[in-house]
Design a protein around this nucleic acid. Sequence first.
DNA 1: TTGTAAGCGTTATCAT
DNA 2: ATGATAACGCTTACAA
Lengths: 352, 352
Amino acid sequence: MTTGDDAGPIIQLGASERLGARPALTARELADLIGVSQSTVSRAFSKGTSVSPKTRAFVLEQAEKLGYRPNVIASFLSRRASSIVGVVTADFTSPVYIDMLDRLSVRMQELDIHPLLFNLQAGAEAGDQLAVLRQYNIETVIVISGRISHMSVARWAADGRKVILMNRDIPDAAIGSVRCDNSASSLVADHLWEIGLRRVAFVGGPESSAVSAEREQAFVRRVAELGMILCGREGGREYSHQSGFDGTRAVMASRPEAILYATDRLAIGGLDALSWSGGLSVPGDVSIVGFDNIDMACWPGIQLTTVHHDVPRIVDGAIELLQQIQNGREGPRKHLVKGGLVVRATTGPAKA
Amino acid sequence: MTTGDDAGPIIQLGASERLGARPALTARELADLIGVSQSTVSRAFSKGTSVSPKTRAFVLEQAEKLGYRPNVIASFLSRRASSIVGVVTADFTSPVYIDMLDRLSVRMQELDIHPLLFNLQAGAEAGDQLAVLRQYNIETVIVISGRISHMSVARWAADGRKVILMNRDIPDAAIGSVRCDNSASSLVADHLWEIGLRRVAFVGGPESSAVSAEREQAFVRRVAELGMILCGREGGREYSHQSGFDGTRAVMASRPEAILYATDRLAIGGLDALSWSGGLSVPGDVSIVGFDNIDMACWPGIQLTTVHHDVPRIVDGAIELLQQIQNGREGPRKHLVKGGLVVRATTGPAKA
DNA sequence: TTGTAAGCGTTATCAT
DNA sequence: ATGATAACGCTTACAA
């Protein structure tokens, strides 16, 4: 039995679907169909143009009905600009950056702005990417990564691209940024002080990381103010679980009562070293604190005390900046989002 | 003190950088500059065109020197096709899908193919996206998600888009797919049998998930063949840690000696329920096995026995398919990548 | 307010 | 093998 002549297509599609395979309607065709000029169609679809509300409504209604949508490629060419936004990433292993990318890309789509993904490897540098940005007429670039060099960012900006940095900043008025307030790590010192701990240590990320440095600095300062003792300090080569694990083993030599980590991932590596693989009690033997409040931090078996990193609000800020830039509006270009301490089960008084 | 008249620009850039801000060179300008026709320039940059090797080399060399790069937007318009590839995602919480997106996007960039990201939310369906695919002249779509409905995929294909599915398949010759061999879960049954375990259970993902179903089926079949006892079975609403945690608690009522999970994430949820939060010994009291071999599986405190999911090879397959499609070559459109069992520390004989 | 026409920077079809 | 020239589907002066 064949399905060709009697059963019809196997997948049932509506009429408009079936037409799909034929080339999309153009503005000219729509214009001819509904009896207006092609430029009127174009104007109906762009805001800030002089069309009578009536004609615009008519055109949009007919377009909807006949399935017309402006071809953005032609529009980009004509306008010499594109609504594509470059999104630069490099840290797919960081839950926080992934979360940002997730939420950001969803929000962008709602606004009909589409993200072209530039996922840079360790080696890649600005030059190559810049050429691509130009080829696509991309005006705006959002950087979700701590690993792209400042130099790269500066070059994009110098080339006239608008740059929005997530989670970092370069002191330059032309470059927007939205970051969490890393100085919130001082709250950790207060918390540890209150539960009676005095000897503390810090385990950080790579020495080159500004995020780690800022979190450390605010913590160390508050520790000193409170008269607590910073007995140990370790850096790592990366922000990995293993790095947190190793850093913890190393820092334990100084017998701290509590350890602050630059990120939750490091802290969970520490939990592994101390508890899962180490046989110590957390917080009985040592308290540990992370930073970021990633999903994993509230798993039943983890319950990590940490500093909340408000990703949704950071993404809100980036979207706002994006619209501000695209509309040529003025306004503050640097956003700082506050976090707060989330106390869970990995901090507590030392056991007697 | 001002920097305006004496100190020069703060960021020093080379000459070619400084020129950056001015509009990019066009083919016409380059042609005039080096004394050939504009079409010769165009030909030099497209393969399969008739230019003498000599002229092509000359043009490319001069282009390199003068910083010319063809504007892809104009090229897309003229060719009525774009080298942009739509990458559709929906599961940013799944480490495997994230890993795929990471590797895939890096590989694509090496080939000068750029991914436009479509990160669909739970609610979003095919129709809206289809319009955008058309607006961008996007011919090829790669789907990295189990949550996009078959219907959506069928609609894109019916509209003439080439679709590549990662980690799933739709039996339709027009749709490419690259997946891991989910039947490798039968190896788990063999392994458990060999170490002397007889009572086993399965904890899966959502009932609607084909991946979970396939993994379960191959396991269950082998369990039956070996004469082992499938004493319990739980599904979940999602592939989350909590779901693995809850499913484990539920399935323990049937007193299994070992549990296979549809994914590593679920298995780690199980480890939490049993060991971290549950006070049982793994594998002393129960053995557990995951599927995927995500990074976390080899953390010191986890050491999960699992089935390897070869993401790099799956990405290789997708890239191959992509090139095959873009070059109009024929060839097999369905790839199945083998995995293998990785025995770590969460499986072992029951303690006496 | 609306229509006409000249680009935008390519590719592709002609001649030569 | 190379050079004119007409699309490609828009935006945007300029005219009406």
